[in-house]
Nucleic acid binder design. Sequence first.
DNA 1: GACCTGCTGCGGGTTG
Length: 711
Amino acid sequence: MSSFELLSKFLQKKIWDMKWSNFTVIQEKAIPAILQTNNDIVLSAGTASGKTEAAFLPILTGVEDIADQALKVMYISPLKALINNQFERINQLCEYMNIEIHRWHGDVSQSKKQKFIKNPTGILQITPESIESLFINKPGVLPTLFKELEFVVIDEIHSFIDKERGVQLRSLLSRIEEFTKVRPRIIGLSATIGNFKVVKEWINLKHPENVSIIEDKSSDKQLLYSLMYFETEEDNNKPVELFEDMRDLTKEQKSIIFCNSRGSVEETTVFLNRLAKKNGAGETYYPHHSSIDKKEREYVEKIMSETKEPKSVVATSSLELGIDIGNVDLVVQLDSTYTVSSLKQRLGRSGRERDAEQMLQLYGTGKDSLLQSLAVMELVLDKWIEPAEGYAVPYNILFHQVISICAEKNGVTLKKLLELIENNDIFHSLNLSKAELLIHHMIQNDILEKLSGKGEIIVGLEGERILRSKEFYSVFLTNEEYEVVEGTRKIGRIDKTPFIFEGDNVILSGRLWTIIFLDTERNKAYVNKAVNGKPPKYLGDGGKIHKKIGKKMMEILCSDDNFEYCDGKARAALAELRRPYHLYGIDTTDRVMWKEKGNTYFLETFSSTQIATTIFWMLKIAGANPKGKDLLGRIKFEYDGSLTKLYNDLKNFTWDEKDLLEEKKKKEDFHSKYAEFIPQELKDELHIKHELDLKGTIEYLHQYQWKLIGL
DNA sequence: GACCTGCTGCGGGTTG
C-alpha cells in the first residue's frame, strides 16, 4: 500500500484539495513508520521539508475516531511563536475531521484555557513551562486530562536535549506517564541533530532500541558560499567598507544578517540603513533580538514574511529556530558562530523554496574570527555536527522538580518521593543517596517541611516563596533588565548593569535614544530621541566551543589549503596567521607555547573550552601564574622554572577534580537558577561536570606535545 | 566574545 493509501479518507481528500502532487521524502517515510510500527520516532530533515505534516498526517489518521472524546495528541514547542505558526498549519489538515486543536501558553487567555479544561479533546499545543503550570495549578485535572494521550510531538527537539529545559521537559513527560493508559509515543522533529544514542536514550530510556531515526539527507540543498575579510580598525570599530559590501550584497536580495550580539545587531542595522538612505532607499533593514519590544519584533516578522521587496532583517539567534519570515534568498553571518549546529541551522533559513539554492556570505572582521569561521565552515562541509551530550548530574533541576512534585501531590512520603525520582527516566541514573541528601537539605532549609504523624513531606515556607513566584515555571536563568520607554511607548530592554547612566546615548530597535531618567526601583529607563548613540552593553555568558573546532583550527594553521571560497584579503590574513607555524615546522600533533618575554608565555591549547579551563587551573596549582584565557583557548601565564618540568607535572601528576575546582571557585562560581539552594557537594559536582574536563585533558596532554618557541 | 527560551493570579482601570 502506498503512503497515500495508508491515510484516512478525510486526509486523502484534504491532500487533493491542497493540490499536492507528491509527498516529500520525509513524509513518504514517516507515514508507514508511524502507522505500521509502535516505535518512538525522530524525523530529521531540512527546513521546509514538511516535517510537521509528516508527523501529523499519520498521527491524525491513527486518532481520528476518538479524538473528539479525549485529548489524544500533545504538541510541545520551545517557542510560543512556533505554536502560533503551526496552529494554522495543523488546523488546516483537520478541516474535514472532528478534531479540535487548542493552544496553551502564556499569551492565551484564561477563558480559553478554562474552556479546554472543561472539555479536553483532540490536540493540545503547549510549552514545557505551561505543562509545569498544569502540574502546579491544576493537579486535580491531570488524571482525566492525560488518560487517553497517545502521541507527544516535540518540535525542534535538539533545542531541548542538552539543556536544563530538556531535563525539566523529560521529567514532566515521565510524570505524565503516571496518568496515561498506555505510554504515549514520542515523535521528535529536528533539522540538525547529532549523536543518536543520546537522543534515543533521552526519548526512551528503557527501550532506546525502539526509537527509529528517520532521516532525509537529500533535503540538504545545494549551497553557494564565500568568506570575506575586513580587518577591524585599531579603534576597534568595524570598517565602513564592511558595511558597504554588505549593503551592496543585500541591495537586491531578501536576506537575514546574523550577528553574534544584540549590540552588534543594533550597530549593523543603523549603519546599513544610513547607507540605504544615501542610495535613496526607504527603511530596508530591521533589527530583531530578544531585547526589542515584542510588538516591534512581530511587526518585523510580518513585514519580512509579506514583502516582495529586497528587505533584510539583522538578527541574533532569535531567528535561528523556525519562526516564519517567508522565503529568504541569502544568509549573512558576521563573524563566526560558536557552534557548527548553529551555522547549519542559520544557513537552512535560505533557499526555502523547493530546489532553490542556499546562499551564505561569511564575514571575518579579525584574525581569530577568520580562523574560527573557517574551522566552523569546514566542519559544516565535512557534514559534522556537535553530538548531543545530555545535561549531566541535573541536581538543580531535581531540586525544582521535587518542589513541583510535593506541590502536585500535596504531601508525599520520603519513600514515595524517592520512588518517583528513581522511576523518572531523566533522574534514573542519579545516585539515590544524593537525591536523599538533597531532600534532607531542602527540609533543613524550610524549602520542604516534614509533617509529624505520617511523615509526609510538603512544600515549606521558603519553598512556597520560590513556588508561588511567576519565575518558578521556567528553569533557566535570566538577567535583570530595565524596560526602555519613550513616554508610554515600549521600545525594548537593556540589561541592568552598573555601567549605565542617565545622559547615556544608546541604539535600541535600530533607533537612537538618550536616557533621561533611570527608575532603578521599577526597572524603567525613560528615553528621548537622540541623533547619535552607541549599542547598549548586555551581560553575556561567554560561549563554549567543541574540541573538534579547536582541532580544526590547528589543522587549518598547519595546512596549505587556500580555501577557494575565501577572498584575497582573507587569504592574505590567513597566510599571515600561518607564517610562524610554517616557519617553525609545526605539526597538527604539536601545541605551541610561545615565549613572549622574560617569564611570560602563551600556550595555545586549540581544544575545547572545558579543556582550556582545566589546563588553566592545572597551571595555577603547578606553580605557574595563569593571567588570562581567550575563546580560542590561548592561555597567557608566567612561570620561572623549567617548562619541561611544568609539562611533565601536568601530564603525570595524579589530579583530583576537587582541587582544580577549589582554585577555580576562588574566581568563578557556577551559574544556574537553583544552584544556590542545593548542598555544596552537589553544586560542586555540577560545576565540575559542566565547566571542567579532567579525563579529556589527560588524554589531550598525552596526545599532543608542547613545543616551546622563543620569539 | 554570547545568544535564546518561559510563566500566574489578582487588583485596578478601560472598553464594548
